[in-house]
Design a protein around this nucleic acid. Structure first.
Length: 460
RNA sequence: UCCCCGGUAGCUCAACAGGCAGAGCGGGUGGCUGUUAACCACUAGGUUGCUGGUUCGAGUCCGGCCCGGGGAGCCA
């Protein structure tokens, strides 16, 4: 006997396995009985979108066993089956398993088990977030998320980056990245008793700490959870989300843009080849234009446009827009959508934003008015990457911090990086969940993370 | 935080202009068939989100609150 195989493995090897005896473990998706003396049990073990059809031939078990067994084989029950792989005479599948031995580990009372074999709304599934990974959509997304995470590490490793674990608990609270969560020790919050002797917060970004290591190891990246206490309730925001943040010494904005482009295309290519079945499923049930959009990125590439040119183009289309754009104002979501969905119909990289719209660490351009920033916008999701060349000149950096009203003393360490052996450097941040939205076509970001945290919602 | 839409059976939704609360799926029972979102018949299942009001009468109209979704802002 081959030993225990996953459904994915069995479907992949297909007819090569015919005649082999195998064992699989999983959960019953559906059972259909035939009075001809056969029951069809579809088994899913979370390794693939498709199920394996198991055939229970009553003549091999005897009526007593069957009458005791069948009532326990409901949707949701966990089982182990052993049997031989056979070509399937029915339509819909090439092979099936002819069961010789079956064991029910855990039943699922059909009168209370919330998952049915039909489709559920995502809103309902969020209420049973501990059971939703047993559905096709959520399990497919989580397999994609897992594959993507590995591919990210692989991408950076192949290019000589070092993986740096930046702190989750930080002391910086004003990076222009939104509201922070305070961290306090103990269950009883008492004024003036700081565990660390000073106020601490959950990180909103690993960038500043990644810069420390980029200016020592050359090319680094951080990849981990980040937190925003922003009271924003949209389909694109989470209070806890994962960010990928590369940071490179001796790198300017052009180098930063190149890496961002290469990163996005490499990830699309890697996922298309590794998660073929998942993409087939997404295309069929989640977003019928998904494959078009992804292959367009690979074929057409990225349009790079300056903020100033973007404002000019948008002004020419003012009649089609609700908000009239003007230089110095931030691009509205409506403007970003217009650029990426109507003008370019693909990813757009907007660079050189006005200095006053962006955080203190971005490098001031020679015009004194703009900074070397870049935002990567994609259709459907909007901004998935934000990055910049960092300010490496002490005097300009201090001027920027003063203009933004920051407390210089809190950032002496950051200025030190410029006082001693300063180099031009750049990096960006990519929101993992937004990228998964883009890759899968799923509408709401709450479906892209196993345990979503949003204002008023934290389960488990 | 602001704007818009919604909350009716386990799930997805109907219910005209206030007038006996329904269907499909799911569950149970029986039938039929190498079945495939199987099919056919029967059947159980409801404090219409909560609360106050208008009315002879409220799922439906009005006020307050709670919850969900979409959009905006903030951002990734």
């Amino acid at each position: 006997m081959e030993g225990r195989l996953s459904v994915r493995e069995i479907l992949l090897r297909g007819k090569d396995l015919v005649g082999q005896k195998v064992r699989i473990c999983g959960w019953v998706r559906t059972r259909r009985d035939s009075k001809a003396g056969v029951s069809f049990v579809e088994i899913n073990d979370g390794s693939a979108v498709r199920n394996l059809q198991a055939i229970i031939d009553y003549s091999r078990f005897g009526n007593l066993v069957i009458s005791e067994l069948l009532p326990r084989l409901h949707t949701g029950a966990s089982i182990m089956v052993e049997g031989t792989i056979e070509p399937s005479p029915g339509k819909g599948q090439d092979i099936e398993i002819l069961v010789s031995h079956i064991k029910v580990y855990g039943e699922a009372d059909p009168s209370t088990y919330p998952l049915q074999k039909k489709r559920h709304s995502f809103e309902f599934l969020r209420q049973i977030a501990h059971l939703r990974p047993r559905t096709n959509t959520i399990s497919a997304i989580m397999r994609l998320r897992s594959a993507l995470s590995y591919a990210i590490h692989d991408f950076f490793k192949k290019r000589g980056f070092y993986y740096i674990h930046t702190p989750i608990i930080t002391t910086s609270d004003c990076e222009g990245a939104g509201e922070v969560f305070r961290v306090v020790g103990g269950r009883n919050i008492t004024e003036g008793s700081e565990f660390f002797g000073r106020p601490t917060y959950l990180t909103v970004s690993g960038q500043l700490q990644a810069e420390i290591y980029a200016l020592a190891l050359g090319k680094v990246y951080t990849f981990g959870p980040t937190f925003r206490a922003e009271n924003s309730n949209t389909r694109r925001h989470l209070a806890e989300f994962w960010m990928v943040e590369p940071e490179m010494a001796f790198c300017d904005l052009d180098g930063d843009i190149s890496l961002a482009k290469e990163f996005v295309t490499s990830m699309i290519e890697a996922m298309l080849s590794e998660c073929e079945e998942e993409f087939f499923f997404f295309q069929k049930f989640i977003d019928e234009h998904l494959m078009d959009r992804l292959t367009t990125v690979l074929k057409k590439g990225f349009e790079v446009i300056s903020y100033s040119d973007a404002i000019k183009i948008l002004s020419q289309h003012a009649r089609e827009l609700e908000m009239v754009p003007s230089w110095g104002d931030d691009l509205q979501a409506e403007h970003e959508r217009f650029l990426t969905e109507k003008m370019v119909r693909g990813p757009v990289i907007v660079i050189h934003y006005p200095r006053k719209l962006k955080p203190f660490y971005m490098r001031v351009n020679d015009d004194g008015e703009t900074v070397s920033a870049m935002d990567l916008l994609v259709p459907g999701v909007g901004e998935i990457i934000g990055g910049s060349q960092r300010e490496e000149r002490v005097d300009v950096l201090v001027e920027q911090m003063t203009l933004k009203g920051m407390n210089i003393e809190d950032y002496e360490w950051y200025i030190d990086l410029r006082r001693y052996g300063s180099v031009f450097h750049a990096g960006f941040g990519l929101g993992l969940e937004r990228f998964i939205q883009f890759l899968s076509g799923i509408q709401n970001i709450r479906e892209t993370i196993p345990f979503p945290r949003t204002p008023g919602h934290a389960l488990f």
